[in-house]
Amino acid sequence: MSLSREEQDDDLLNQLLRDSAADPVPDEGFVDTVMSRLPAPRRRTNRAVWLGLASGVGLAAWQLQDNPMLSHVARDWSGGQFSLASALVLVLVVMTACCTSTGVLTK
């Protein structure tokens, strides 16, 4: 069955339009330009580090809660005094926290 004139024109038009759209556009550095304009990579804060650190501080506090030295230091701090003992306790808490968090992270 032969196509009507209108259908032939339609086919020709569609063919011409599709042919014109088929030409690929060469890259010519386009991709590199886009990539160079991307925002700088986000510093991916490792949630595990923060989680470990928080757990470490918690654990250290829990372990030292019955220690008389801690209550002594707490009294010092509430009285606005910063003694050598309290500094030592602070260092110990931080170190324990770090060690514990490292332990948590390496597990």
Binding site: V25, P26, D27, V31, V34, M35, L38, P41
Partner: peptide
């Protein structure tokens, strides 16, 4: 993974059609 290499591939695959 915020994989830029993968995005590079994605741009490479679609740039021609988008630009046309």
């Amino acid at each position: 993974h915020e994989d830029r290499q993968a995005f590079n591939q994605l741009v490479r695959r679609h740039q021609s059609h988008v630009r046309a």
